[in-house]
Design a binder for these strands. Structure first.
Lengths: 187, 187
DNA sequence: TTCATTTTTTATCATTTGTAAAACTTTCTC
DNA sequence: GAGAAAGTTTTACAAATGATAAAAAATGAA
């Protein structure tokens, strides 16, 4: 997944604006188990995932709760840091050796103020994340864990292969034991 | 709550841009029980709530699920329509006689293309809705229904007075019977 | 490979939550 | 204010889920 594909997929940009934006983006490679973003920091960078898989989890008393998985092409961002300049809820951990595109949030802010195309690109970015987040919320509210597991099996069977089931269970909001029961039924 | 307060609260705008935007906004008054937005339509208008209270619910087999309440100052929008031009998930119903500020999404789109301040205002709008939605998702994933009811009692006691408990129970993701049990304990 | 560690599944039991029905309370209408 | 309708609480029972422990399977390192 190239950076051009990722940028264009959010919203097409005129060539000159795209070049301007790309000049602020660098590619980095990081090993499995790296904690890319931390809940207790105000994160200054945003990332796009070229290769790899990541999970976002919150540290809660007793155990950590995984609430998002990112895959190739996804933006990896502490939204609370990016939008409000405040500490987020999530640690984000690389579950595989990964390649990321990195971008300073401050650089992006400057571009927003000076280039209307980039401002609208940033608007589209937030809007798309908004709809995705809303869909996650609705999936969680409308469907049982069993249904959401089946949804995952159909729409994203990769994920279940690449991620250990304890994290999937946490993501679905059930215990690993319950997920095992569901898998025993469904298979 | 004036339209100026609502607009400025999202992101301050230069006076000329604000005037431009306000020229597209009209005030309307609608009675209780009006269905303002419908899941089976692509909605062309967005609203801000001056006075009243609304709920968003999805029609699911068996019963409707309430997943959002809007109060004074909130944007009332079918995000799927606004962002993606597709049918949304929700009907939005006025629970009280209400006064709303209305705006054609198409007019707003035109302003986005031509005024960088309005484009950044629109970006901020989406970003704020994003963080709010993320908070709702996380509240739902991290906390039990009991905790979320107590959270509501503390942060928004009004809501529980103004909205019938069946809707609150649905919003919390439990049955009305369970909510009754929780209330019996907490009181 | 072999052994140790981690992950997943299975079993049992206790707790929570849902369903259904009835009783009670509040609100609305005439 | 009386009666009807709508909303809320309570009860009893059934079903689903969680906690815990232990077994089985998979993974990783030497």
């Amino acid at each position: 997944m190239t950076i051009d594909q990722i940028l264009d997929n959010i919203h097409p940009l005129p060539e000159s604006s795209k070049q301007t934006l790309k000049q602020c983006i660098s590619e980095i490679e990081l090993p499995k188990r790296t904690i890319l973003l931390r809940a207790d920091r105000i994160e200054k960078r945003i990332y796009f995932l070229k290769q790899g898989i990541v999970r976002a989890y919150a540290h809660t008393p007793g155990h950590n709760i995984t609430f998002w998985f990112g895959q190739e092409g996804d933006a990896v961002v502490s939204m609370k840091s990016y939008v409000a300049g405040q500490k987020g809820y999530e640690d984000i951990e690389l579950l595989e050796n990964s390649i990321l595109y990195a971008l300073e949030a401050a650089d992006l802010q400057t571009l927003f103020e000076n280039d209307i195309h980039i401002a609208n690109w940033g608007r589209k970015f937030a809007e798309q994340e908004l709809v995705t987040t809303e869909e996650r919320l609705i999936s969680r509210q409308f469907r049982t864990a069993r249904e959401r597991y089946q949804e995952l099996l159909e729409n994203n069977p990769d994920l279940i292969q690449r991620v250990q089931l304890g994290y999937i269970a946490s993501y679905l909001g059930i215990t690993q034991v319950s997920l095992s029961r569901i898998r025993a039924e469904v298979k």
